[in-house]
Design a protein around this nucleic acid. Structure first.
Lengths: 182, 182
DNA sequence: ACATAATATATCTTTCGGATATATAATAAA
DNA sequence: TTTATTATATATCCGAAAGATATATTATGT
């Protein structure tokens, strides 16, 4: 079975929302779906060129004067391909959580450094929660259907971060206890 | 800055728990840290050979007769490198959740297929929860310090799945409502 | 007896990540 | 005012990672 370049479809999906340059696309991707969908600049850049060659995206605006900037948009063919891909059941989600992996392979004498990592993780999750709250506040209350879907992904982010915070606190409690017990 | 092959250290960490063949290693990885740490066979196979060349792992057992099987173990040098890597702060966790991405880039008329995907996701999270419960029951109550670390990662898995289940139910409620409203 | 599933190693290609180079415009600091 | 830094912007390279596939043996189920 031929492997699917999912980055292709992520790009089509985001460009359908609004035409963007590669640079803007990377930024928008990070700010909108970045919490649960990782994309790298190198890969996006390569993919967007492939998509252009295949006729799924096209240049809709190019500033010849001043700072160069190439804005891409989705073609009719690209829209069709995207919709067709969206009907396929999603692949299982993959995660690479280095903190969790380190905890699993650590030994007892390494617990103090794990505590440091957990505190940092807790702090960063709390910070991000505040950022999400700000984003949520900026979405109008009388949400149309499209923003209802976005709110669902935002809600996932909030729950994910809260789960992380709760677990970090639990882990810190546990590790501090076992430290005292010696 | 030179990039780090984290698979190398995941392998060292797991092989330190017990010597294994490449095949067993992949299985063990999936069953122990698979929920939050993704590894592929192709990459593990290549990495284990690199590690052998560099002297971080060694063959500890090889069945010449019958079915061929090569069991690897961590060398003293490998243990040192692992411990040194464990002191570094973990990289930010990365995720690729295709379901969430599809929800973000979908349009209103695609909501019915999203409902199907959410139901499948809910069912699979519920199944996995049962599997984790079985694993937890098999760990003795008077846990030593090592298994206390493992319990923490298991606890993370439980919370992650519960969060997923709660969110799926919320999403299904929301989408069914907006369907009725038309 | 036969088919199927589990065990086991090996290889190949494509996808993906991220470091780095280069250049311009806007902003902050000296 | 000049200088330094940050944000915007494209492009390329290479190593890490994913996963499809080939091959062979040993259990297990029908």
């Amino acid at each position: 079975m031929k492997r699917i370049n999912t980055t292709h479809f992520a790009i089509l999906g985001l460009l359908r929302i609004k035409p963007m340059s590669a640079y803007e696309l990377v930024k928008f991707s990070k700010e909108s779906i970045g919490l649960f969908w990782n994309e790298s600049y190198g890969h996006i850049h390569k993919s967007i060129k492939n998509l252009e060659t295949e006729g799924d995206v096209e240049i809709v605006e190019e500033s010849a004067t001043g700072r160069k900037k190439i804005v891409y948009g989705v073609t009719a063919q690209g829209r069709e391909r995207l919709d067709s891909w969206l009907t396929l059941p999603p692949e299982e989600s993959v995660m690479r959580n280095e903190l969790l992996m380190k905890i699993f392979v650590s030994e007892e004498h390494q617990i103090p450094q794990l505590v440091d990592f957990l505190q940092a993780e807790l702090a960063s999750a709390e910070e991000l929660t505040a950022v999400l709250a700000g984003i949520k506040a900026s979405i109008p209350a009388g949400a149309d259907r499209q923003s209802r879907l976005w709110l669902l992904t935002l809600d996932y982010g909030e729950r994910y971060l809260q789960m992380t915070i709760d677990w970090c606190r639990h882990a810190l409690d546990t590790l501090n206890q076992s430290n005292e017990e010696g």
